[in-house]
Amino acid sequence: MEAFAYREVQANRSAIEALATEPQARFLAGGTNLVDLMKMGIERPKTLVNINSLPLQSITVLPNGVLRIGALVRNSDLAYDERIRASYPVLSEALLSGASPQLRNMATVGGNLMQRTRCPYFYDVAFACNKRNNGSGCSALEGFNRGNAILGGSDHCISTHPSDMCVALAALDAIVQVEGPKGERSIRIQDFHLLPEDHPQKETDLGPAELITAVDLPNLPFAAKSHYVKVRDRASYEFALTSAAVALDIMDGTVRAARIALGGVGTKPWRSTVAEQLLMGKPASEAQYKTAANVALQDAQPRKYNSFKVELAKRTLIRALLTVGGMV
């Protein structure tokens, strides 16, 4: 690990100022991803700004019914929060399907949003990787790309976004609250993570020295019937090959509203509004769910080793829809 200067801050403004003034500075929250990447020589900050003392630790209900989750709430505390379990079970399930209990005790909501890909070529500095070093090439395109994305890729990058939490947040239309040198702003979750296009190194909409302060969950009563299904190479403690976050509003056998997001298949958490719209007003049936799954994957561009993900993602989504619909 390369040497770095270390600072602790107690207020949001100090954190933002530190990041704006110190060259190559990074925020340190849970550190589960950042410290690992620093050990690998992939992240090389000159300054670490420890933000763990900032007042971003609580989960509160706003007057308009929005649930505001402080950026420093730990993944385990969020997953076991009774309001989350009752009103947004898909988020609790997604969190509990990710990492291990130890890592969830450390990892924060803000850090999870900033989590970087586990593409093996990103992690191995001996290989070309546009995300690490833009312009060097993408080793995954013609390499062992079994774990890589089938949606949202470009000629420059096909790495998957690794987070489970963010897939649930995509389905719930979460809002990321940020504070920066120019003040506060809100970013919709689908705008927060960027497609790689020709800039795989730029992964989020965050500007220089912007700090994630909270994630807001809009009031969504039918999210009480929601579910996360994750398929992976082993039963636990593994990233998704495919996953699906689903919420359904079903009345008298008809789908009134649906939320669908996929994980493990996209270069960002993959919301499928086309599949949602297809289900609206249709019977809550397995046949309709299969049609929706086909639509959700219609733009898939599999490569040599990951073509299995197309069918697996469809089945994962169908299983999630059937489960929420009470049919399995």
């Binding site: 602790e8 589960t32 410290v35 690992d36 420890n50 130890q102």
Partner: peptide, 29 residues
């Protein structure tokens, strides 16, 4: 593993189990 993948380094910090290999000591004031 020294990378948060095996759990051999698990300790309790303020009563919670964590991976000590991914915990910087300076952040444990």
């Amino acid at each position: 593993c020294d990378h948060g993948q095996c759990g051999a380094c698990t300790v309790l910090v303020n009563g919670r189990r964590v991976n000590s290999c991914l915990t910087l000591t300076v952040a444990c004031q």
